[in-house]
Design a protein around this nucleic acid. Structure first.
Length: 535
RNA sequence: GUGGGCGUAGCUCAGUCGGUAGAGCACCAGGUUGUGGCCCUGGUGGUCGUGGGUUCAAAUCCCAUCGCUCACCCCA
């Protein structure tokens, strides 16, 4: 529409098309003024018709006055982008079919593990969200600007004080950043939940991050968490659940990398790195698989860590042989035992050993692998941490860990918890690349093509077919049969049900298999069986 | 936030001494009235991302701006 109008508008302004209302009415006022080909009378006519056009808002210029409503200009100039905002996506029917397939598997496996569903609002109070994800995370929170009076008040208060408005004054709500913090809020809020609360939650989260491959600003997480216990049973069960999901989806080559926050801290202490540099050291160490030992050493030094400490830390987190890229867990554990860790480090190490042995007979067992360099960005983890890796994806398919302090941050009671989060989009990206989807049908199976019958009778037959459990689309127009069949093909319907007067008179319908090009006439009330037979 | 690449039809792209836009696919209509995916003919659809500059003349040259994208950063 806008294109045609703009094209006509151009022709008008060039003088090669007549200036007729109402088309001319859609020529923006500014264009009319600029148009060299218009004489004063034409100009006045154009502006008058702009004025008379019914949908023009009040702020459009009066005749003879230069100015254009912003929305008006936007329509005319095709400036309205129809793409979804950067980092977000529309899910078209086939996309939904794939997502739903994966979500169905996740839900079923989670429920089989005894997890119960939870949904929480997209919007949370900033007081709930801030301070849980570290400084980087806080930066990535989407904030909701105050509305109306609250916004005016904030701006005015600052103006009265003669200072610029601070970010914190402009918003007190934001979009959730993950599903773990909302769960923690729910745990703190509701006392009547089961003592061991196992919940799953599949919902979108939002991060004001720079989008990249497999990385979005709006994406789905599929979380399982166990709250209310420090028992390693909780760790094993969440790992088992995600491992079972991935196996059911057809992944065979994933590893669940396993580490422990306290072990990491102990290693950093053992390398003589001060607490203030701990987080910087973690970020560098986490890149081991990407940039290698030398790369990490360089980065550690770059971040202000003494060369001797950097070298020592590398030694601690990488067992003996530098050529061995992925040593097995027992080798790693044996190496760590010899590192002279302090008491807390020893405890963490023992915890990891216990986890490995407890998980042995679960789906997670064969996939767990100790990775002393694994750090993970979120600051709320306190114990074991996990991350899922597959060979052909730079990022991870999911991650999680124990967060015994998070729920207590809401100031009610301390409740220990552990959780695991699968990243839906990452899974979809890999499944797409590896062509792991089964046949997924979208839309109707039967296209009702009708010819010389009354439209109402056609709709009636469609209803009867649907009553038999068939998925039926009715062709909307009177059209040649060939057109109808051609359209049926494009929708993915496998069978055309052809209804003409002769069929209707006999209470029958002609079913045509579009791919096999075979057809048969059946009683309308027996169509479902016939369709099943033809499939 | 830092650096590189790209913005022409719904999609994939051509258009490279500046001369007011093309192809393929897709879509629509025909090739006579209830049987399609091939073929043939015709058609719809583009302020060449946006704004400014140079020029008689800009998709093409210059500047700015926006958008997309890759790497870094960080993460699911």
């Amino acid at each position: 529409m806008a294109g045609a109008l703009a094209s006509h508008a151009n022709a008008v302004l060039r003088g090669s098309a007549p200036l007729n209302p109402p088309m001319a009415a859609l020529v923006p006022v500014a264009w009319v003024h600029r148009a060299p080909s218009l004489d004063p009378d034409q100009r006045r006519a154009a502006l008058t018709s702009v004025y008379l056009w019914g949908t023009i808002p009040g702020d459009v210029a009066q005749p003879g006055v230069l100015g254009v409503s912003p929305c008006f200009e936007a329509i005319m100039s095709n400036k309205v982008s129809t793409k979804p905002p950067s980092g977000t996506r529309d899910f078209l029917p086939l996309d939904i079919a794939r997502r739903q397939y994966v979500i169905d598997v996740i839900r079923e496996v989670y429920e089989r593990h005894g997890f119960v569903p939870l949904e929480t609002p997209a919007i949370e109070n900033l007081s709930t969200l801030l301070g849980k994800y570290g400084d980087e995370g806080d930066q990535l929170l989407y904030r909701l600007l105050h509305r109306r009076d609250a916004l005016k008040r904030a701006v005015q208060t600052a103006a009265t004080d003669g200072r610029p408005v601070a970010e914190a004054e402009l918003a007190d709500q934001g979009l959730r950043y993950d599903l773990t913090v909302p769960l923690a809020r729910v745990m703190a809020q509701y006392g009547q939940l089961p003592r061991f609360f196992r919940r799953y939650q599949i919902q979108p989260v939002w991060r004001a991050d720079r989008p990249a491959r497999g990385r979005f600003r709006e994406f789905y997480q599929c979380d399982v968490d166990v709250a209310g216990t420090t028992s390693p049973v909780a760790e094993v069960e969440v790992c088992s659940a995600v491992a079972a999901v991935l196996e059911r989806l057809g992944f065979a080559d994933f590893t669940i990398r396993l580490n422990h926050r306290e072990l990491l801290r102990a290693l950093i202490r053992a390398a003589d790195i001060t607490d203030s540099l701990e987080s910087k050291a973690l970020v560098a160490v986490d890149k081991l698989d990407k940039i290698g030992r030398d790369g990490v050493t360089a980065e550690l030094v770059d971040r202000g860590i003494a060369e001797t400490s950097a070298a020592r830390l590398i030694e601690l987190i990488t067992p003996g042989d530098p050529g061995d890229a992925s040593p097995d867990s027992q080798t790693v554990l044996a190496h760590l035992r010899k590192c002279g860790l302090d008491e807390s480090g020893q405890r963490a190490l023992a915890g990891l050993e216990e986890l490995l042995s407890l998980a042995a007979e679960t789906p997670a067992g064969s996939h767990l692998s100790v990775a002393p360099e694994l750090a993970r960005g979120l600051s709320y983890y306190t114990g074991p941490i996990f991350e899922i890796a597959v060979p052909d994806l730079a990022g991870s398919l999911g991650g999680g860990g124990r967060y015994d302090g998070l729920i207590g941050m809401f100031g009610r009671r301390q409740i220990p918890a552990v959780g695991f989060s699968l990243g839906l989009e990452r899974i979809l990206v890999v499944m797409q690349e590896r062509d792991m989807y089964p046949e997924l049908g979208v839309g109707a199976e039967v296209m009702l093509c009708w010819l010389d019958v009354d439209m109402g009778r056609a709709l009636g037959v469609a209803a009867r077919l649907r009553g038999q459990g068939l998925r039926v689309e009715t062709f909307p127009d009177q059209a040649k049969l060939g057109k109808q069949l051609q359209y049926a093909d494009t929708t993915g319907a496998s069978i055309a049900a052809i209804l003409g007067q002769s069929e209707l008179d006999a209470g029958r319908i002609t079913l045509k298999h579009l791919a096999k090009r075979t057809q048969e006439s059946v009683a309308i009330d027996e169509a479902a069986e016939a369709v099943a037979r033809m499939r």
